[in-house]
């Protein structure tokens, strides 16, 4: 594990990604102190340009764009991490069962996974949110529902490979139960792959969330980056700052997370280590 951390630390781009994410986390933690007011509250005159009293200007209703972005960061991270965790748990259970038991179970589960993979992700997520009515929890469910197949396929592949290894057979030879073999031996041995792929999923989830909010399918009572852009798009030519700053926030966050994901992948994946 410590060797993995050391390898990660040698990767400059990954460190940059970690720094960006660190700043974002700091912002989320400090938001209630810096902007104690509700971000939906009117803070001053509408369409104030950046600089002056408002660092990043105000939007069409006179809300502080900087405060909106700070609160939006919390939403993005919450939904990104929440949806990814849900996808990992669900995907790992299905993929694990398929990869461990093989045979007919595997055929059924993997065909199901492929079925989900063939549906265009964003449209499927839109559909789910539209059915469940827009809220943070339905966004998490929708994003998890379109993200789990990649995890399921990964875990299934790892389990199939591990199942043939002698240490797993040795454990079966000791009389261990399936649950013990899966939880104590197989999962820990594919944890690093899951972490690496999962970290990349967070970035995708944040993008999906911004897209949903932009189309008005985000939670109307929760500030989010997609919502700010959606509200500002009508005045894009006269008030560029409303769309630009949340856009930059999305770009930096997703870039940072992807860099971390690549770094973890290289640090933890033995097949890529020698490059």
């Amino acid at each position: 594990m410590w060797q993995g951390v050391a390898r990660f630390a040698r990767n400059r781009m990954a460190l940059f990604g970690a720094a960006v994410l660190g700043c974002l986390l700091l912002l989320v933690v400090l938001t209630p102190v810096i902007y104690p007011d509700n971000p939906f509250k009117l803070a001053g005159p509408a369409l104030q340009p950046p600089g002056g009293r408002f660092l990043l200007g105000t939007d069409t209703l006179g809300r502080d764009v900087a405060a909106e972005i700070a609160y939006g960061a919390r939403t993005s991270l919450l939904i990104g991490v929440g949806a990814t965790l849900a996808a990992i748990v669900f995907g790992a259970v299905l993929g694990g069962i398929a990869g461990y038991y093989r045979g007919r179970t595997e055929t059924v589960l993997m065909r199901l996974t492929e079925f989900f993979q063939t549906i265009p992700a964003f449209i499927f997520a839109l559909l789910i949110v539209a059915i469940l009515s827009p809220s943070v929890s339905s966004e998490i469910i929708a994003i998890a529902a379109v993200s789990w197949p990649s995890i399921a396929r990964l875990v299934r592949g790892e389990f199939v490979a591990l199942g043939g290894r002698e240490f797993v057979q040795a454990c079966a030879g000791l009389g261990a139960s399936d649950a013990r073999i899966i939880l104590n031996h197989m999962l820990p041995n594919c944890a690093s792959s899951i972490i690496a792929v999962g970290s990349l999923l967070i970035g995708t989830a944040i993008l999906l969330e911004a897209g949903l909010a932009f189309l008005g399918l985000g939670d109307p009572n929760v500030m989010s980056w997609g919502l700010i852009i959606s509200a500002g798009r009508a005045v894009l030519r006269s008030a560029w700052w409303i769309c630009t700053f949340p856009g930059i926030a999305i770009l930096l966050t997703v870039l940072g997370i992807n860099l971390i994901g690549d770094g973890l992948n290289e640090a933890l994946n033995p097949r890529l280590r020698e490059r």
Binding site: R165, E166, F167, C171, N184, H185, N189
Partner: peptide
Amino acid sequence: FQDPYASLDPRQ
């Protein structure tokens, strides 16, 4: 087992 490199769980 035959292969002393494969028959022990590397994480235990």
